[in-house]
Design a protein around this nucleic acid. Structure first.
Lengths: 136, 136
DNA sequence: TCCTTGACTGATAGTTACTATCATGCAGTA
DNA sequence: TACTGCATGATAGTAACTATCAGTCAAGGA
């Protein structure tokens, strides 16, 4: 059995976050000892693991809550869960593409700065923009 | 001269966001008419463009504010601005890698669901996890 | 036995970056 | 004059944390 601080250490998250998640009922059926301290079993750790993995993948807490509730229904909810993951995968794919675009904006901007500094060009604030904001 | 709603349309942002940015002084020297309405010049549009591009690249508003203030100092701040952009580029690069990892977590998870549904496996909630959370 | 220390608790407030609603004000038109 | 439309600042709400707070309880030392 693990306390919330043990769990926080195991998964490298803050205990605040775990309590926040617990309040949102993202970990079902966590037992308490007589001092009211949460005690996580190994099974509970697997739930924590799953929630963190999904959160890490960019899913919102309310979607995760929905997903967790579906898990509790067992096998009958498998296809629905599949659709949720499929949808999240699409979002994640878009995020990858978006992050690449964003990185490229900065890359272009940086190369303009480097060029400007090398040749000692003046007033590059605007000219550098023209080629790095994606609107022109 | 453009109103805040014109600008919102031009750059496909909400006017709320632009007012929010204006309050944070991300657009310097916006003039007002006698009705107190903000009037954006073409030069102001370039500032808006720059702020949105930087925001789009993942920079925080306070960093952008800092950057904008440096712009006002002119050429003497070029190397400092270069360092800021360099730093943001590093962050962006990390974000790309992170988003790819996140997408792969979901990809793996999805393939387990698909396999499970095809062969009619039961209780895959945990087994699928073992291979998709990155902790094992 | 008393007292301090340390771990956990819920409640609450603060953070970032928006997003939305509100009453107000002014300018132009019927 | 009344109405419509667009702008305003103030304010409140949102997500997902992050941090602080007082309070509780048990274990250990003087």
């Amino acid at each position: 059995m693990y306390t919330i601080n043990d769990v926080a250490q195991i998964f490298s998250v803050s205990p605040y976050t775990l309590r926040f998640y617990a309040k949102k009922e993202l970990f079902p059926n966590i037992v308490r000892d007589k001092q009211n301290t949460r005690l996580f079993s190994d099974k509970d750790l697997e739930y924590v693991e799953m929630v963190l993995a999904l959160r890490h993948s960019g899913m919102s807490l309310s979607s995760i809550k929905n997903y967790i509730d579906l898990c509790a229904l067992g096998d009958q909810s498998i296809t629905e869960r599949l659709h949720i993951i499929q949808n999240e995968l699409n979002n994640a794919e878009e995020k990858v593409q978006e992050s690449i675009r964003q990185r490229n904006i900065l890359k272009t901007k940086l190369s303009y700065y480097e060029k400007a500094i090398k040749i000692g060009e003046k007033n590059i604030i605007w000219s550098e923009l023209k080629h790095s904001n994606g609107h022109n």
